[in-house]
Design a protein around this nucleic acid. Structure first.
Lengths: 217, 217
DNA sequence: TTGCAGCTCGGGCAAATTTCCCAAGCCGGA
DNA sequence: TCCGGCTTGGGAAATTTGCCCGAGCTGCAA
C-alpha cells in the first residue's frame, strides 16, 4: 500500500464473468497508474486473493444479489480494516448502497458510469476518500428526502430473511422448516412484510425483493 | 462484409454499460482480426448503428430481460436477413436461448464463457455458422430431453397474458377487470398456469415470467 | 361431414391460506 | 425502570386454492 503516488495503485478485480474481468483489466491497465495484481470470480476467492496480494483497492463487481457480496466486504474488512473496497455493480438500489457502505465499502459506482468516472473512483478510494458515482449520489439524496426511507430498511432482519426466501420461491412451510419457526409465524411475517412495504400482491413482493437486490432472478 | 479473411471482421457492440463496452472493445481489438466499428447502448441505437455501419457481426449484450433484446434482433434481421447477431448475456434460460435463435440470432454465448470462446464464436458467426457456448449447448440439450418442452410454449395466449399481468403485480380482480373476465376465470387460469408450469408458488411464477422475458423487473 | 382436440370461460365446494387483531417474552436505549 | 421495537405465535373471519366439472367455440383431420 505504501507510496501510491510513486508505485501506482494495485487492484484486485472481483467479477464472476471472465471476459468482463479481462475487459476491465485492460481498461484499468491502460491508465498507467492502475495495476491489476489479481482477479477472483467469487467471494471466497476474493478473500484469499486479498490475503495473498494485499491490493490497494478491491474492485468488487459480483452480481451482488445474494448477500455474498456484502459478506465478502465484511470478511475483507474484518481482516484488514484499512482495506479499500469499491463496489462496482449494475444495481442501484438505495438499500443496497447503504448496505455496502455499512459493510465497509469505500465507494459505490454503477456500471452505467463513464469509464473515466470509474477510474477516478478507484483513485479516490485509494487515497482513502469515499467515492460514488453521480447516479448513486442522486439515489441516496432522494432516499434521504423520502420520509418513508427506502422500503427495505423498515424491515427487521428476520423479515428480510423471510422475504428473501419467499422471493426465492420457497413456500411458507419450507421457510418455517428452514428457520425452525411455526408456519403461523411465517404467515404473519408474510403479511407484515406486505403491509410494511405496501405490496398488495406476492408478485409485487418478489419484484420488490428483486429490485432491491435481495434476490436474483 | 465482403472479404472477411482479408479485411478482418467488423463488429457492432451493443451493451448498456459504457465501461463494459470499452472492456469488450479492448478484448476484441487485441485479437487483430476483430474491429469494433460502432457501439450502442440500447435497441434503437443498435438498429441505426447497424444501418449506418453494416457490420459483419453484431455482439448484443443488453441485459435482455425485457423483450427489447429480441426486438432488436428482429428489427435488424428484418432489415437485412444476412445480418449475423451473436447474443452475449449472463442469462442462460433455455426459453431465452430458443427465443433468441427464433428471432434470428446466429449465436448465443454466456458471459461465464472464456474470452477465447467468445472471440471464436464471433469468428464462427462471421463465417455464417451457428455458434453457442458449451453451457448453452448443455442447457438446450437438457431442455430437448425434457418431455415438457420449454415451459412457456405450453401456455395458451390467454394464459400468457394473465401470467404477464400477474407477474407485473396485478391482483386477480384487476386482471379480471382489465380483460373483462370473471374473477373465477382468472383464478382458474392462475391455477392452471401453476400446474402447467410446475410452479408451486406465486413467487416461482414471477421468477419464471421474468426469466422468460415475459416481464421485466 | 363428423368428430376430436384444445382453448376459453365459468360454477361449485372443501381445504388451505390470508388477513387482521391480540398477547407475551426479550432486549436495548432513554 | 419503562417504553418501543423485534420476534414469536394464537384465533377467527374472509379470501383464495385446488380440483372437478360442463359448455361454447375453433380448427383440423379423417
Amino acid at each position: 500500500m505504501s507510496d501510491v503516488a510513486a508505485t501506482g495503485i494495485s487492484v484486485l478485480l472481483v467479477d464472476d464473468h471472465p471476459i468482463v474481468r479481462q475487459g476491465y483489466r485492460r481498461v484499468l491497465e491502460s491508465q498507467g497508474d492502475l495495476h491489476v495484481v489479481a482477479e477472483a470470480d467469487n467471494a471466497a476467492d476474493a478473500y484469499s486473493a486479498f490475503k495473498a496480494h494485499d491490493p490497494d483497492v478491491v474492485v468488487l463487481d459480483i452480481s451482488m444479489p445474494g448477500a455474498s457480496g456484502l459478506e465478502a466486504i465484511r470478511n475483507i474488512r474484518a481482516r484488514s480494516p484499512r482495506a479499500r473496497i469499491l463496489v462496482f455493480t449494475m444495481h442501484n438500489e438505495a438499500v443496497l448502497v447503504k448496505a455496502a457502505f455499512g459493510a465497509g465499502a469505500s465507494g459505490f459506482v454503477t456500471k452505467s458510469s463513464e469509464p473515466s468516472a470509474v477510474v477516478n473512483a478507484i483513485r479516490s478510494v485509494a487515497r482513502g476518500e469515499r467515492a460514488m458515482s453521480d447516479d448513486i449520489a442522486h439515489i441516496l439524496a432522494e432516499d434521504s428526502l423520502s420520509p418513508t426511507g427506502s422500503v427495505l430498511d423498515q424491515l427487521g432482519e428476520r423479515e428480510i430473511e423471510i422475504l428473501r426466501q419467499f422471493a426465492g420461491g420457497a413456500t411458507t412451510e419450507e421457510i418455517a422448516t428452514h428457520l425452525n419457526l411455526s408456519v403461523k409465524t411465517v404467515q404473519n411475517y408474510h403479511y407484515l412484510i406486505k403491509t410494511k412495504t405496501g405490496a398488495r400482491t406476492d408478485a409485487q413482493l418478489v419484484r420488490l425483493a428483486a429490485t432491491c437486490g435481495l434476490t436474483k432472478i
